[in-house]
Design a protein around this nucleic acid. Structure first.
Lengths: 203, 203
DNA sequence: ACCTGAACACCGTTCAAGT
DNA sequence: ACCTGAACACCGTTCAAGT
């Protein structure tokens, strides 16, 4: 049992993670300093170094939490429609885009290159892979149900991933300002992209 | 006629832009400081402020150049296949992805949220729009040729943009490390995604 | 008109010292 | 074992002063 007012914080690691996410949402990845995170958590500017190797490690941990939420969204999409892999894919796409739009700065952190390749630790990569594997499973469900054309699982999964990912990042980057202001519009756009990908652009 | 050794640089704005792009490619958007750009250009750390309002304005100008190259790639894709809008779309997708993969840090700058929304000046937005309009024109060519299903131009364009954009950023973010190491592999992936989008995933 | 150098407030990181 | 505070090298930005 630890007191919050004591010299020793007790759960500083989590407090820093929370403060980091809060400041990230407010200030963006450029405006987020390790010192401001420490201040927000109520500790000195050097305290974080007991829990994170450096600033990149904190960012990496925040990004990891984002990938875990993304993996959950994929799992949820699969379980929501146990016998309809087409609906699973639609729900996955909408979930992907909705999650990114709801946390645009986290999405930028996860995919925007703020974390240098050599700072990407194994845990971060694993969390990213888990999210992708959730989508791959949904594609495999469709293949087993025989609804897709004969193609490599990875090719289909990459096409689906690319279109959801692209739409999500176009929105978070503000390139679709007027067309994607409400959550309803965002859902509609995700559904439209998913349908075009499923049925094809060509006659 | 201006001398490079004189006290007055003569073309410092362009020199800073060039130095910025060079350092961006080498250090990434996180490692790029305005002071290092000034040093690379051989001027004092405060000289850039004669030519750019602040650091964001320099980044914005670099991003703008990136969008102009992207717009050129779209135009080139259209002109390369004057009578085949399907090939235009494939060339546009490959061009998009190839450009991003060749300049990953510039792509991150263009789409990664390093430039805050309020720093996005009119010129930057226009350059981005021009690139998108190039893609829209290619879609319209296909609609006029009657090759696409009946759908809003914008819906088709957004689906095409999303999938190319998503693939490009997945690669530059390093999420496809092993599958996209050579330029040939990258072209192949872009072609695969484009074909799946054109013909559809479903049987 | 354009560039420099000192100055200021901030930042990431380290390390001896405190509890 | 965990946190603090001084210290260092860096950064963005401003501004009087130089050419």
């Amino acid at each position: 049992m630890k007191s919050k007012n004591s010299y020793h914080h007790g759960d500083l690691r989590n407090a820093l993670l929370q403060a980091g996410e809060r400041l990230l949402a407010k200030e963006g990845v450029v405006g987020l300093s390790l010192r401001s995170v420490a201040k927000e958590a109520g500790v000195s500017h050097s305290a974080p170094y007991r829990h994170f190797r450096d600033k990149g490690a904190l960012l990496s941990a925040i990004a990891q939490a984002g990938f875990e939420r993304l993996a959950e969204a994929m799992d949820k999409a699969e379980k929501q429609h146990p016998d309809d892999p087409a609906k699973q894919l639609l729900a996955a796409g909408i979930g992907y885009v909705t999650l990114a739009v709801g946390n645009p700065e986290t999405a930028n952190l996860m995919f925007g290159g703020a974390i240098k390749p050599d700072e990407k630790d194994a845990e971060l990569m694993e969390a990213g892979d888990r999210a992708f594997q959730g989508l791959v499973r949904i594609i495999e469900n469709g293949q087993q149900a025989g609804i897709y054309k004969e193609r490599e699982t990875m090719e289909l999964a990459l096409a689906a991933w690319s279109s959801s990912h692209g739409l999500a990042l176009l929105i978070t980057a503000g390139k679709l300002k007027d067309a994607a202001s409400s959550e309803e519009q965002v859902t509609q756009l995700a559904a439209s992209v998913c349908e075009i990908l499923s049925r094809g652009m060509l006659k």
